[in-house]
Design a binder for these strands. Structure first.
Length: 464
RNA sequence: GGCGCGGUACCCAAGCGGCUAAGGGAGAGGUCUGCAAAACCUCGAUUCGUCGGUUCGAGUCCGACCCGCGCCUCCA
């Protein structure tokens, strides 16, 4: 049984897709006004884990992620540089795609852009006007939340209290009630706009997700994800718009990822604790280590990024890589043992069952590490046979369909000058010239290559 | 004011009513080694923020309190 924590109900629920064997997944994508930061990637990596798990569990997944390429920030950014909206956002869209590839995030099936779906949004806004859920005010269109009694269910916000505690809204647009939100914003001097049946203007942020999700996934979808901060108002508003328009349930399961903080505090540029992926790559970070770090804490728990915790994650991942390396490079005696198959199957089952339990990655990894220790113990006593080794390796590779943390292919071969240094060291060792041997070892270490002397000869591995 | 999250060994972290409280990192001991490094193995909490309560039995449920954090405004 697969179960997820549904923000809507506030409880763990058994997962049942609308259509047997198929999951329609919508995840909120980037607003392309700047380079994404590592907190953004925590959310995308959580979604990637979810999706990869669903795929491993045998589901067909149809995944749509929007790209917000028109909003206040993109408009401001473009204006500042005197660029068109499109020219301004193109750079960040490209950076986003580069980054997700670097982090081994599986691409979505579709990346609809807001600017390319204006007609869908206009149609929806018109429908909401016709049904009395929306109203015009000075050329803009607003959603009237009092017309939608279920408003506040997702965020568990009581409208009365919300009104009492809210600050005065200083929005330059006029609306009837403070918490009504804009569906369509009247064109302003010097800002991009679209000439439509609603008048000249641009869409509000929330309507874009409602329009694009239904366009590609239908009026009802299985899972909608995003960061915890999207719950209110963004997702609350999406529900209001979509359900008011279609008159049916919008999303069955809402999954939200908690924040990443840095050194215990919210990341912000003014605090100087703001990192993009590029910042970290420039420091020599292996992006897959970052992936593992972001992956290895449960998605509903706040994650504290520090360079120390990143180092812990790196070391932890290295243990898995060393295990795989050993299996790939060792020679085994022929034969196989049913006991090993059993251990392997048990580990796979534990791993998958843990993930099926609201993506409990800690328990899943614990199953893997326990298995690694068990097998290592046997390896050290030469108790693993050839077929066992192949089976173990296949199992770890299967898990890696979800984790995606193993080295991509064969390691890059070493350049000849390095190889000859290794040979020189072997020669020195044979001649018992250990001072020279150690000097060469240290020299290579400086170059990021670690040598290991094993029974089966010298081995090397790269370190970052 | 409202809503919500967290406090488990030196650090990260699972466990959510009942086997000896997972797992990883660091550390200590050992194996291997010319010595190392690396790797591997072993060992690390009578105890789960504090105080009460419920229960045959509580990190696990209830109450109070202390500490840290987030949201209620754009934000993953």
């Amino acid at each position: 049984m697969i179960r997820f924590f549904n923000t809507l109900s506030g409880t763990l629920e058994e997962f049942k897709p609308l259509r047997e064997g198929e999951v329609r997944l919508y995840t909120c994508g980037p607003t392309v006004y700047d380079y994404p930061h590592i907190g953004n990637y925590r959310a995308y990596i959580f979604e990637d884990l979810l999706k990869r798990f669903l795929l491993l569990a045998g589901f067909k997944v149809i995944h749509v992620m929007n790209i917000t390429d028109v909003d206040d920030k993109t408009i401001k950014g473009a204006a500042r540089l005197g660029l068109s909206l499109q020219d301004y956002t193109a750079k960040y869209i490209e950076a986003f795609f580069e980054d997700i590839k670097t982090l081994r995030i599986l691409p979505a099936d579709l990346y609809p852009r807001a600017t390319e779906h204006i007609p869908d949004m206009v149609k929806m806004v018109k429908g909401l006007l016709a049904r009395g859920f929306a109203y015009y005010k000075e050329g803009s269109v607003y959603f009237s939340i009092e017309k939608f009694p279920a408003y506040g269910r997702l965020a568990k916000i009581n409208l009365e209290e919300l009104k009492a505690g809210a600050r005065v809204d200083s929005d330059e647009y006029e609306k009837e009630s403070v918490h009504d939100f804009a569906l369509w914003k009247k064109a302003k001097e010097g800002e991009p706009f679209w000439e439509t049946e609603l008048g000249a203007g641009r869409p509000g942020w929330h309507i874009e997700c409602s329009a694009m999700s239904s366009r590609y996934l239908g009026p009802s979808l299985d899972i909608h994800c995003g960061g915890i901060d999207n719950i209110f108002p963004h997702h609350e508003n999406e529900i209001a718009q979509s359900e008011a328009f279609y008159g049916q349930k919008f999303v069955n399961y809402w999954l939200h990822c908690h924040h990443l903080v840095v050194d215990g505090e919210k990341m912000s540029k003014s605090r100087g604790n703001f990192y993009t992926l590029r910042d970290l790559l420039a420091r020599g970070l292996d992006p897959v280590d970052l992936r593992f770090f972001l992956l290895s804490t449960h998605y509903r728990k706040m994650l504290n990024f520090t360079f120390d915790s990143l180092e812990q994650a790196r070391a932890s991942r290295q243990r898995i890589l060393d295990f795989v390396y050993e299996l790939e490079h060792r020679t085994f005696p022929p034969g196989d043992q049913p006991e090993i198959s059993e251990l392997t199957e048990k580990m796979l089952e534990d791993f998958k069952n843990s993930l099926a339990d609201d993506l409990n990655i800690s328990a899943a990894l614990a199953a893997l590490f326990e298995f690694i220790r068990e097998i290592n113990s046997r390896l050290s006593r030469d108790l693993i046979k050839q077929a066992d080794g192949a089976r173990i390796l296949a199992a770890v590779q299967e898990l890696d369909r979800v984790l995606a943390i193993l080295p991509e292919k064969e390691e890059q071969p070493l350049p000849p000058e390095i190889l000859s240094r290794i040979e020189a060291r072997q020669k020195a060792r044979k001649e018992k010239n250990f001072a020279l041997a150690d000097a060469i070892r240290e020299e290579l270490r400086q170059l990021g290559i670690i040598l290991e002397d094993t029974k089966e000869g010298v081995r090397w591995k790269r370190i970052k």
